[in-house]
Design a protein around this nucleic acid. Structure first.
Lengths: 365, 365
DNA sequence: AATGGGCATGTAATCGTTTTCATCGGTCGC
DNA sequence: GCGACCGATGAAAACGATTACATGCCCATT
């Protein structure tokens, strides 16, 4: 592989000149520049990034730390980050880890020196505290952290408002006995959604019943298993708000097996609007969380700090989550499972149905 | 940030010794080593990877080039790669690009010097030729390339055998008029599946009817739109094999709107076994392609070459694809949409139903 | 004609490692 | 008791770029 020295010799200039040509930095005669570029192209030269980052202290790469590379939500987040990174000409180094503090610290350590900034998905307190110290002297943006991360730069989904909108929708349809299938305790998203659920009940003048909060863990099987507990409740709830779509899907499957009709016997709403939500039968009413946009925005936020390699200043942003009304709650569109495909693409194109009641419809947090 | 020099001074040894301690390479007294490690830990020292790779010519990172970061298949592939990379202590640099040759070349160029090896998803001829030259002098593993990539190291899904198994299943159920919803022309996966479809018909003594091959592009909307053409065919096909699950899902949605019953009026089979296939109504009979395993295996294959930085020797591997029988084809499990959730996890755990008829059941290719 | 300024280019120091080779005790064999 | 050897450590030369500073050169100004 040709080095800058080879190119310089071949082009009859000094290495400084070659360097300048490749950094469009300074004043080089256009003629010289063109000549150098031609020689470099002929020799198939490209600056060695290790040498470059050794002296500049910049890698032009950002790291992404995720609790686990599983499920559509994460993959959409990565897609958003990648999209924005391509625009900004940054490389993306992904690293998943079990969500415990220890592995996060070791992952951060392994990334050190390879990246200019870091995006961390911090779904619980453990993850947040693990990067706290690091973030004090390095550009870090957190995704969906809880309130404890007040001194970070962070961006989150409007969990509470989204959940509020979903539950209010159920209330509007006449439901009074509304159960919730919660996410794992300690998970910030899960907590936010639970809070939104309770607030919506309260605002509707419905007394909160702890017996109606069924414990889940965001997995399909949790939704599946929750069904048996659900149908045993007396009186049986007429509606269920699941903290995410996967659980709603599991629940839907189990209810079908148990011959409980949705939405006639029980209305169901989820959260996330994963791609298949609209293809379920009945199509799932859910809250759309723009995971891709979340990733994109996180990178945008990070880049200026990454460029200067200074810790990000505390700043919080929230991405609206909007309610998507479909058939599973029995709203007027109940029979209108009509799909409106457009935007053809490779493998999976994403279609968006009619949106209703944005998160902003809910009361201010 | 402390450098090796600081640690050496503080520990009262030379930098060579510190370096040796961190590379567990050579003979250093255990006492010295412990002391150095203690000092390093106290100073929060970690070797600078740029300096390291400048001199060793190794980055301990591998690149992943995907046509687009969209859809579950890709995200599962990345997950597999990440899983294996973590075991091998390699970092993963992901880079998506439109699948045309030009952007692939520029992506490869941007990755150069940052990675020790590269995994390329090469769904068509363009992508394959674009990396051909590069692969001659750099470790590259291709994912799902077509036959033209004979001189590469590559690993693929048994598209043809999987499709064969699916169509044979339909034949076994008594179907004679079986349509296929194809993938984009030029796409290797799509081609392989089409070939498997035709061969299964031929082996069953069913004449091939070009009118039964409906053009699709792997998107849900393609499946949706194909429905109208399908129901207009006379006599109407009694079964449809869709080249991937997304199209099967779109088709399912459209047929529901058109009041065509599945599987009673039309049986449907897909390909990929995406996570939600089992939750559809009816649950989708499909071919399980182990995307995660594909990614894992690709990394395993790549690592030895990456370590030595020598081009991979041509070697091809095929990952079996197995038929998963569910209700959408009306097999005996038709009413048995029972789910068997297990393996609870974060967000999305993946459940596997009973498998039947592995790809190996099909005749040898 | 001498001086100064600006612009293009070159020289050399530097980034933080790894690694070759030299050095230096100490032990062993005789 | 002495040379050979061996095992631990150190000194210094890479690796391939960036960039501060020095150096000419040319032209304009006086």
């Amino acid at each position: 592989m040709a080095t800058i020295r080879d190119v310089a010799r071949e082009a009859g200039v000094s290495i400084a000149t070659v360097s300048r040509v490749f950094n469009q930095a300074a004043l080089v005669t256009e003629a010289t520049a063109q000549h150098v570029r031609a020689v470099a192209a002929r020799m198939d030269y490209w600056p060695n990034s290790a040498a470059r980052s050794l002296i500049t202290h910049r890698t032009h790469a950002i790291g992404v730390l995720l609790p686990d590379l599983y499920g559509e939500f994460f993959s959409e987040v990565i897609r958003g980050i990648d999209l924005a990174a391509r625009r900004e000409r940054y490389q993306v180094l992904v690293s998943s880890s079990r969500a415990n503090a220890e592995t996060i610290v070791s992952a951060v350590r392994a990334l050190r020196g390879r990246i200019d900034g870091l995006i961390v998905m911090a779904p619980d307190a453990d993850a947040t505290t693990a990067v706290r110290e690091f973030a004090a002297r390095f550009p870090v943006v957190l995704l969906n952290p809880g309130a404890i991360a007040a001194d970070f730069t962070a961006i989150s989904i409007a969990n509470e408002e989204g959940a509020y909108a979903a539950v209010r929708h159920l209330v509007t349809l006449g439901h009074r006995r509304i159960a919730m299938l919660t996410g794992p305790s300690g998970n910030f998203d899960a907590e936010g959604r639970r809070v939104g659920y309770r607030r919506a009940l309260q605002d509707a003048g419905i007394a909160w019943d702890p017996g109606l909060e069924l414990a889940g863990d965001f997995s399909e099987s949790a939704g599946f298993h929750a069904a048996s507990g659900l149908v045993r409740l007396r009186p049986r709830p007429t509606a269920v708000f699941a903290a995410n779509d996967y659980m709603a899907i599991g629940l839907l499957g189990a209810l079908r097996d148990a011959d409980v009709r949705v939405p006639q016997d029980v209305a169901i709403a989820g959260f996330d609007d994963i791609a298949i939500a609209q293809y379920l039968n009945p199509a799932l009413t859910t809250v759309r969380a723009d995971a891709c946009g979340l990733g994109e925005r996180a990178l945008q936020l990070l880049v200026p700090y990454a460029r200067e390699r200074r810790p990000a200043e505390p700043h919080r942003e929230t991405l609206a989550a909007s309610l998507v009304v479909r058939a599973s709650c029995g709203a007027r569109q109940a029979n209108g499972t009509t799909l409106h495909p457009h935007r053809p693409g490779q493998r999976a194109s994403r279609h968006h149905d009619e949106r209703a009641a944005g998160a902003h419809d809910g009361p201010q947090a």
